[in-house]
Amino acid sequence: MSATVLATDALYAWVGVLLCGLGLFGFIIHRHLLRRLLAFNVMGSGSFLLLVGLAQDGRGIDPVPQALVLTGIVVAVASTALALVIFRRWHRVSGESTLPEDV
């Protein structure tokens, strides 16, 4: 890494680090399941940024992590959609939007 200027890729890797931390914080403090889902997604985006930014920092474009992240995004949306389906079902059955263990 060049010493004085922060490279673009490194900058986004750092943003990814912060997003991971922020997402974890939100995931712990919230009890509402939708908010937890949002926090989980923020965490996922952070790890994607970290993955690509770190791999490309000082090395140029790297298609392998990019392809992995592309796969990851599709899996993330599928799991979000599935979580929403399960959440609605749970909400319909119990009328709650939190899980009983958390109360």
Partner: peptide, 24 residues
């Protein structure tokens, strides 16, 4: 050689963190 980050990158990074904080 690594592209140095410019003001737009910084702004975008801050915007990302601010939006994430807003969402959470």
């Amino acid at each position: 050689s690594a592209l140095p980050a410019n003001a737009f990158d910084l702004l975008l990074g801050l915007g990302l963190i601010a939006c994430a904080a807003g969402a959470l």
